[in-house]
Design a protein around this nucleic acid. Structure first.
Lengths: 321, 321
DNA sequence: AGGCCGTAGTTAATCGATTACACATGTATG
DNA sequence: CATACATGTGTAATCGATTAACTACGGCCT
């Protein structure tokens, strides 16, 4: 910057003013400064700027699992929305581990992100408290924690789950195997609670960990126990369940019905196509980013609850096949 | 930091020494400082530290498309490797757009990442030159650019493509439709060049853009032109092709054979399972991160070329079905 | 006792920006 | 003609760390 100033025959203050679009400098001075910048290929040091202004124009996003397409889509949406407001997004991948999540959150805070978007790995409110105590704007995404005191953006699958349960019961299923998420996550509990409630007793539950392998194992156990329908509460566990079904040579929906929470582009391409509960991922990501930006702006956004939709495709023996 | 110093009755220099594990401070002093840090909940400002030391302990990773599971896996691997060396990764999503790529690269450089990993959107070397001119360590990943002067890490699919071509020709296919990537990317050109060469004239090519929609369109055109086998040079285009095949009610492999470059967890679950050329994504990501860290360290790593493997599964009418 | 040395700790410069305040110049006003 | 006021720029403090150069202290040797 000093070089630029010298080159243009002005002080660094003037260069800074030109850079930040202040009213002061003469068009002529501005011209000279811009020329010098161009000539020297000068690029301002974002670190120094941030140190001085205490604003990094950066959002932190800590997600549970980058390999889960659901979170990848969310990340993508967050990033789009943030960029359109001049913010950058730093993504941290917690890998469904609370420790790694905490590590990432601290790293991001140390780097002074202007706000944090978190998909909590567990519903323990401790980390959330720590962030809030630091005074950093925080929004929870997809999952919540016990007694959350910050805005939450998530999808509501109650209606869809209830409709699905009714459908399965109506089709005569009396043993529905539920592959649920971990009981210490809000989505892990809530989805299966609602669903089991709607089934009215015809359910058996196995908890997985939102990963493919656990889906296979849960499916194996549930099939052994005589389940005639399987519902996976997340796309990766759904993938695992599907693998187990294929491995056993079972026919969908004749031998066993299957439905999955979360849609994926390839689900419609299976034979039969898989019935799913589709979450509005893009809207969730965008809404979360908007809420966080509002918070940073000093406003107090409301919680956002978007509805997930049941998409019937045939894997549960629907008429609409 | 001043507060901590005051609290512990020492100067900021001493606090800094304790923080950085310097030899100087007495165990006793160290103890006092650590207590003060604990009590005040002090966390050092990474921006200030980086400004002073000109090292951010951060790697930049600009990938072509976060929604493409291939890149998501790579990102994951890069992140793992980087973290194990005490580095953080900032991911930028270029969305297969050269402009957005350039924007991200500049943003990352402005934030003074210690090194940059780039999956170039086009083979135009301009951006690479710009980064190199700035003296920032750079490694190319998956794709290269014309006359690249920096280390490149990528997968070599020649053998696998040749074997696949032989197989298809051997099975009697005389009209093989190739769904290639954009001709201005190295992977877009090389894969189809090798494959078409090995087919020896039995090929028709349509270039897509590495996205699902383009795969469908390409497949439609190739099927209309009488192709009896389709080979997609990327998993998203493969997904699109599969959709088109399904939409037309064609049977694989009876009516049409299909093979895809890039494996995905759900490919084996289709009926028939899809034959693929699998890239060692995790190894690619790790190798790229290691090369970059070596470069940052002042060493000069070699290019890395990992081999992709043909996985026969049945969608090309293999005996091994 | 005086000089020398090693050690623990302090002072102050520095990284690269932003910005409050001071200053100089030019124009309008009484 | 002196005063006030607007306008464009420069000076220097500041953000929060690191670190070279310096100081003070206590012990050891002759």
């Amino acid at each position: 910057m000093k070089d630029v100033a010298q080159h243009a025959g002005v002080s660094t203050a003037t260069v800074s003013r030109v850079l930040n679009g202040h009213a002061a400098p003469t068009p002529e001075t501005r011209e000279r400064v811009l020329a010098a910048i161009e000539e020297l290929g000068y690029r301002p040091n974002a670190l120094a700027r941030s140190l001085r202004t205490t604003s990094t124009q950066t959002l932190g996003l800590v997600i549970s699992d980058l390999l889960n397409p659901f979170f990848a889509e969310i990340a993508r949406a967050v990033e789009d929305e943030a960029r359109s407001h001049g913010y950058c997004v730093v993504i941290g991948n917690a890998d469904e581990s609370a420790e790694q999540e905490a590590t990432y959150v601290r790293t991001l805070l140390d780097r002074r992100v202007d706000g944090l978007l978190l998909c909590p790995a567990t519903d323990d409110p401790e980390l959330v408290r720590e962030v809030s105590a630091g005074g950093v704007p925080l929004v929870l995404l997809d999952r919540t924690v016990r007694g959350a005191t910050c805005p939450v953006v998530r999808a509501d699958g109650s209606e869809a789950l209830t409709a699905l349960a009714r459908r399965l019961v109506g089709a005569g299923h009396t043993r529905v195997g539920v592959i649920a998420g971990p009981p210490d996550t809000s989505t892990g509990r809530e989805r299966s609670d609602v669903f089991i409630g709607a089934l009215g007793g015809a359910a058996q539950v196995v908890h997985g960990d939102f990963r493919q392998e656990s889906g296979s194992q849960a499916a194996a156990k549930l099939i052994d126990d005589g389940a005639t329908a399987l519902v996976a509460m997340d796309n990766l566990m759904g993938l695992g369940a599907l693998g187990e079904i294929r491995a056993r040579g079972l026919q969908i929906p004749h031998d066993i019905a299957l439905a999955v929470f979360d849609d994926q582009p390839w689900f419609p391409l299976l034979d039969p196509p898989i019935t799913v509960i589709a979450q509005p991922t893009v809207e969730m990501g965008r809404a979360a980013a908007r809420s966080l930006l509002a918070l940073i702006d000093g406003r107090q956004p409301d919680d956002v609850r978007l509805t997930a939709k049941l998409v019937l495709r045939g894997s549960c023996g629907e008429a609409e096949l």
